[in-house]
Design a protein around this nucleic acid. Structure first.
Lengths: 221, 221
DNA sequence: CAAGCTATCAAGTGATCTATTGAATAACAA
DNA sequence: TTGTTATTCAATAGATCACTTGATAGCTTG
């Protein structure tokens, strides 16, 4: 009886080790970044506006919780998301928080600016098959290189304005980026519309696509 | 620029509010219990071996994180899991921790005792359709009452031994309970096998079933 | 092997979290 | 009203966590 309680407590304590990893905003941002592409500590520190030491410590916490893998690469250490289960937890948490916490919704709206017309995965697949649209990945190049939706071309958001001519005039443009809370696709659609193009954003990003359809994943050399 | 950072930080901080809710073993156990059936504070305190005040506080934390709903029922307050998204996060976290943390695996084995032959959902459905097996819900009655797999009969684990005669001798018995980390089904299978019956456990429990097949859910009056 | 990066470690401080205790409140019944 | 039960509140002490700073270790290159 008391033994059973002890064993049950030990089990929940072990699971809570992973739960704790999701309890810090900094770690969540790191997970979000790693969901796009593996990265070194320094890069993560820059992307998340944190000190290197702090990021290193958080990464070690994530590592201890089994959420990321670590790999030495010469003078750098490359961290990557560990397994699809990790991604699934993060996406489920993000989704749940968006649905159940008004504050998340509010913060998302604040960050993304006004809403922009979206297209869902299913429609995207259908229109792509018909050659109806151009799909653009507006994330940084390295993230595109680490994996992207098949058939997408890479035009990082920074370069979109001066590379507008690359996009055929006749077809609608669909932009996607890191996920529903990533501002790049919103920004891209606004820029495109300002330039007189027809444009929408994919309702979510590369990690969601990858998880929902493993076979579609495409990795560049 | 600085504005963008502030907005992004606010967003991750808001999501982390929910993340923090998953950071305590006590709260995880409460979520696990609530995934079976809504309950009052006192019941949860008893089931989790915690003081009422402590459980009340944790429930308030869960409520603030949007993970549970609260409803006054006379002198009691009935807490329930809020929405399918909440359940999805909890199950994803449990799954991920089982896969990625050796310690969880070890603690689970310790708690459950030796492994017992399992059957997956797909096979269960097929065998049920053929009338090949008897499906038994070995959770406490109230949890069965709050929802169960269609076609299952309720025999709480405490009563299994003296109600053995209710089970037809000819057919294999499949027992299920709260989930893969719940000991009841394991126990039931062992008892049944000792009594010379053919028995297996369903590989996971009612919450997983409910989530994977909403239409199969069955709620008693 | 010395210089230059990158990443980690170690220690410290302020902040937050947990569980306990005892008192307060809310709903109900006699 | 008074008593009873269920829940919450308030205060607290101990533990854990987050971020900073400055030192250290590992690898690469000249």
């Amino acid at each position: 009886m008391a033994d059973e309680r002890r064993a049950k407590t030990a089990l929940f304590e072990a699971i809570a080790v992973m739960g704790k990893a999701f309890a810090s905003p900094v770690r969540l941002e790191l997970l979000d970044l790693l969901a796009q592409a593996p990265r070194a500590v320094e890069e993560l520190a820059q992307a998340s506006d944190q000190s290197t030491a702090n990021v290193s410590q958080h990464l070690q916490a994530l590592h201890a919780a089994g959420l990321v893998t670590r790999e030495r690469e010469g003078t750098r250490v490359r961290y990557a998301l560990a397994g699809a289960e990790t991604l699934r937890v993060w996406l489920a948490l993000r989704e749940a928080s968006a649905v159940r916490l008004a504050e998340v919704e509010r913060a998302a709206r604040e960050y993304l600016g006004g809403d922009v017309e979206a297209i869902d995965r299913e429609e995207l697949v259908a229109r792509m098959a018909r050659g109806d649209i151009v799909l653009v990945d507006v994330r940084p190049q390295e993230e595109y290189a680490a994996g992207h939706i098949e058939g997408a071309r890479s035009i990082p958001i920074d370069e979109l304005e001066r590379r507008l001519a690359e996009l055929p005039r006749g077809r609608e443009v669909v932009a996607y980026c890191r996920g529903p809370f990533c501002a790049y696709a919103h920004q891209a659609v606004r820029q495109l519309q300002t330039a007189g193009r027809k444009a929408r954003r994919l309702e979510d990003g590369w990690p969601e696509w990858r998880l929902s359809d493993q076979t579609n994943s495409h990795r560049a050399a």
